[in-house]
Amino acid sequence: MSNKTTTSILEYAEVHRDFSMDDLFAYLHEKVGISKSSLSWYLFKLVNENALVRTGRGMYAKVMKQPFVPKLIGEVREIYDSLLVNFPFAKFCVYQGDIIAPLQHHLSSNRVVYVETDRDSAETVFNFLKDGNRDVYLRPDKDMIYRYVDMDSRVFFVKNLVSEAPLQKVSDVPMPTLEKLLVDILRDADFFYLQGSESEHIFENAFNLYAVNRNRLFRYAGRRKAKEEILSILENLNIK
């Protein structure tokens, strides 16, 4: 993207806290001679980069909320480094359950380390982690967790990584974006304790506290068949 055009858009957004594409176009067309199609592309990119947020049809605002950046603990770093050495061609997403805590209404302990990887690699990764004398579970469901898992202890869940899941690098470790986490909480069996009314509180806290990329959220939700459910949650919470 042109630095001059991007800077001009962000400067306009700084002064006009909530603005329409038409007003922005009138301002920029005179200043840099931009076309409407080019402006649409710039706005699309800036929304995807969490620099701007859509506030309505053809309406935008500068993002004032903080991005969601999960905390990286040493154990997750060590596990990922070990996996990277032993499975250099597999894809991973590794994080600890504590990162969900800021989103929760009723705080529940979760010290699980989640290791998500390609479907074809999951069982091999599970066996590798188990050989290291770790307490590991492969794709655990609600019944397995009820019977055998202490979520307050350091256990490991190995799960399938959905293709094209939105990830972010935290000190080079692939971890979930907020949008991925929100969808997974609705869809994954091991997050059963966060589903129902608690998931609504989680969405409310997520949108109140952090910058949420709606395009990324709905794209991933579409892959997991959760888009309609999320739209319903946002409507119930009156989140525009």
Rank of each mutant, 00 (worst) to 15 (best):
N110G: 00
I145A: 09
L10Q: 09
K45G: 00
V136K: 06
L161N: 03
Y42W: 02
N48W: 03
Y114M: 06
Y146N: 15
F87I: 09
R134T: 07
D131P: 03
A206F: 12
M1G: 06
F207H: 14
I239P: 04
N238C: 07
N50D: 10
V149G: 06
N86H: 15
R216K: 14
Q104S: 04
A206I: 08
E116K: 10
N127D: 11
T124N: 12
A189Q: 14
N236H: 11
L83R: 01
F89A: 13
L39Q: 10
I202N: 01
E30I: 11
E164W: 10
M144H: 11
P176N: 00
T5L: 07
H201D: 06
V94S: 06
L83K: 03
A211Y: 01
L83A: 05
Y210A: 05
F87H: 07
N86G: 11
F89Q: 15
N133T: 00
R17L: 10
V69H: 08
V76R: 02
L10T: 08
N86W: 12
S108D: 10
F19A: 07
V113K: 03
E30S: 12
R17I: 08
D184A: 10
S197H: 11
A61D: 05
R119Y: 13
E75H: 13
F25V: 11
A165Q: 09
H105A: 02
A165K: 07
L43I: 12
E204K: 15
K130Y: 13
R57E: 09
I79M: 14
L217S: 02
V69Y: 11
A51D: 10
D18Q: 04
L209P: 01
L107S: 03
K91Q: 15
D98S: 08
L46I: 03
L129I: 08
H16F: 13
E235A: 12
S35T: 15
P176Q: 00
K240D: 02
M59T: 12
